[in-house]
Design a protein around this nucleic acid. Structure first.
Length: 376
DNA sequence: AAAGTAGGCAACCGCCCCGCG
DNA sequence: TCGCGGGGCGGTTGCCTACTT
């Protein structure tokens, strides 16, 4: 036995709203407000509509200051950035775009933006990037959704990156492992990932995020010094789906992408970081805090359990065994230098702030485990 | 000019969350 | 404490319009 419907389906009108209905609804709400009860509103307003339908009509069309029409490039950038960070949480994304509704943004993403990014991806990504399974062979080093709520009311720089809606300027990482096919050449990655000098980039000024079929790939500004370093790889948060067990762990070392409503983790709700291919190697997570600090966790087991599966972190970010918090540059250097991994990270500290640093691999190495982290 | 196709978008559906009695 | 029900949300549908053949 299902639950009772919210209204008498037989006696409510459906379909497009007439101008008369619009004016009735608007007049009523202007005069009396919603009263906090949408279900009762249509009857009071003299409308033969479901309360939910009234609410939708009001929120998406009739309420003041609704912005219709073309999205600006800035809005594109914000949507892309947030989608990369938090996924299809349209209401949250809409909250960052005054005058835009979640429905608007959702439609815009589904009809235009997604395609736009896909088109760019076809120009950017080598075939191996979209066909290889290797880049999702490991779970993402991200916290699960349930551990994020605790950060929502905390100071901005204490939030996991996935909750940062402003000034998001660090790229996310996946575990894409390229097959090195050619020696590095200036202006390209040795993975064969070409930097396109003339690519149309809607996400100007920031790291550019391109959604590929299986992972999100960031571009680097062509003229940035990093490009000249023959970097082996940039990795970003993957959006690939996979099988996920009911306890939220991710089986088969694949990346989870399950609905939050099913209680499983959702990749885009996770924080950012990167992980080395070898499970015995040290896992490192970077959490960009503010312009002068970064937070790092080197506690592999907080995110990856002993079976190398992706699991719930018991105590959130601040578990007793976790080294995680705000670090200054020296801390970062020290942590990196003490890392047992074979990654050779250099910090390009042009202006003395971590936010403008470049973590790169040893450009002389060709080992595919080398990874690079870069943020503007 | 007509039929077919694709794209855009408003609106609906159904599930989940959470406040309240 | 628990269940009900309204609100909120993301996914999906279906209509309308523009474009193509």
């Amino acid at each position: 036995m299902g639950r009772a419907p919210c209204c008498d389906k037989a006696n409510v009108k459906k379909g497009p709203w007439s101008p008369e209905e619009d004016s009735k609804l608007k007049e009523y709400i202007d005069k009396y407000g919603t009263g906090g009860n949408w279900i009762a509103l249509p009857q009071k307003a003299g409308l033969k509509r479901c309360g939910k339908s009234c609410r939708l009509r009001w929120l998406n069309y009739l309420r003041p200051n609704i912005k219709h029409g073309e999205f600006s490039e800035e809005e594109d950038r914000i949507i892309c950035t947030l989608f990369t960070s938090i996924g299809s949480r349209w209401s949250i994304i809409a909250a960052q775009l005054p005058g835009r509704t979640d429905n608007d943004i959702k439609n815009y993403w589904n009809t235009k933006l997604k395609k736009k990014l896909r088109d760019m991806q076809t120009h950017m990504a080598p075939p191996s990037l979209t066909t290889s399974q290797s880049h999702r062979s490991n779970p993402p080093p991200f916290p699960v959704s349930s551990s994020l709520h605790q950060f929502q009311n905390q100071p901005f720089h204490h939030q996991p990156l996935s909750l940062m809606h402003k000034d998001l300027n660090m790229m996310t990482y996946s575990t894409y492992t390229p097959t090195l096919t050619s020696p590095a050449t200036p202006g390209s990655f040795s993975s064969g990932f070409e930097i396109m000098p003339n690519i149309s980039n809607p996400l100007t000024n920031y790291s550019s995020l391109f959604q590929t079929q299986e992972c999100l790939v960031g571009s680097m500004h062509y003229n940035h010094p990093a490009v000249k370093k023959n970097l082996n790889l940039i990795m970003f948060g993957s959006e690939g789906s996979c099988s996920t067990s009911s306890d939220g762990s991710c089986n088969n070392n694949q990346i989870s992408y399950e609905s939050r409503r099913s209680g499983n983790i959702k990749q885009e709700e996770m924080g950012m970081g990167f992980q080395l291919e070898d499970p015995n190697q040290k896992f490192m997570m970077l959490n960009y805090g503010n312009s002068s600090s970064a937070a790092i966790s080197d506690d592999h087991h907080n995110y990856i359990n002993n079976n190398n599966q992706w699991g719930e972190r018991p105590n959130g970010y601040n578990g007793n065994n976790t080294r995680f918090g705000d670090y200054d540059l020296e801390d970062v250097k020290q942590l990196i230098s003490s890392s047992s991994t074979d990654i050779n990270i250099n910090i390009n500290n042009d202006n003395g702030s971590i936010s403008n640093s470049l973590f790169s691999v040893d450009e002389n190495k060709t080992d595919h485990k080398e990874k690079v982290m870069y943020f503007y």
